[in-house]
Amino acid sequence: MYSLATEQPEDWWEVEALYDLCFAPGREALSSYRLRDGAPPVAALCLVARDADGILGGAVRFWEVRVGAARALLLGPIAVHPTRQGEGLGGLLMNQSLGAARALGWERVMLVGDAPYYGRYGFAPLTGVEMPPPTNPDRVLGLPLVPRAWQGVAGKVAPAG
């Protein structure tokens, strides 16, 4: 059993250590990190999952970006500790955070990831959306949180600021 909570400032180092464990060294060199540089995450959507003993099992963060003139959420990173994978924790984090984004009035979410995995949550390839290089355009995926939210949205992805 896991409890989900909004990430707090005191969780930061532990979440960063989880991301370091789950992703390749140099993860911060990825283009998506350029969109996060100097910008705070959308705190209300950043969740941590802890077991009954308070041990961190997973985390997800979101950042506000612009796609052309449209406002969007950039999902990621999302990670589950290797010893906790296969327990549905990633799905729990994904579903809870996307539900919270909808409830807060966000219209669209995007990420860079594997279509077969994220497709189960409704994400599909975005055409006309340009992530900073080097990003494989086939891995740029979007999810409308309201009907037709991605319709007509195109352009370069840039920090919200």
Rank of each mutant, 00 (worst) to 15 (best):
L56E: 02
A44K: 05
V65M: 10
A70F: 01
L30F: 15
A72F: 05
G155M: 09
L141W: 03
V129A: 11
V146L: 07
A149E: 06
A29C: 08
P25I: 12
Q8W: 03
K156F: 12
G105H: 09
P40S: 13
W12F: 14
L141A: 05
P134G: 11
A124D: 15
A5E: 08
P133C: 06
A43P: 03
V140Y: 03
L73Q: 07
P116A: 12
D37R: 13
W63G: 00
L18T: 04
L92S: 04
L141I: 03
M94Q: 08
G88Y: 12
C46K: 02
L21M: 14
S32R: 11
P133H: 08
V48Q: 02
V65L: 10
D11A: 13
A43I: 00
R50N: 05
E14V: 11
P147R: 05
D53S: 15
W12G: 15
P137E: 09
I55P: 11
M94F: 10
M131Y: 15
R66F: 11
L98R: 07
M131E: 00
G128E: 07
L45H: 10
E7V: 04
P159M: 12
L111C: 14
M131K: 01
V129Q: 09
F62Y: 15
G113M: 12
I78Q: 05
V67M: 05
G88C: 13
L30Y: 13
N136T: 12
G91I: 04
G26Y: 01
I78A: 05
A160T: 02
L93G: 01
G88H: 12
G86C: 04
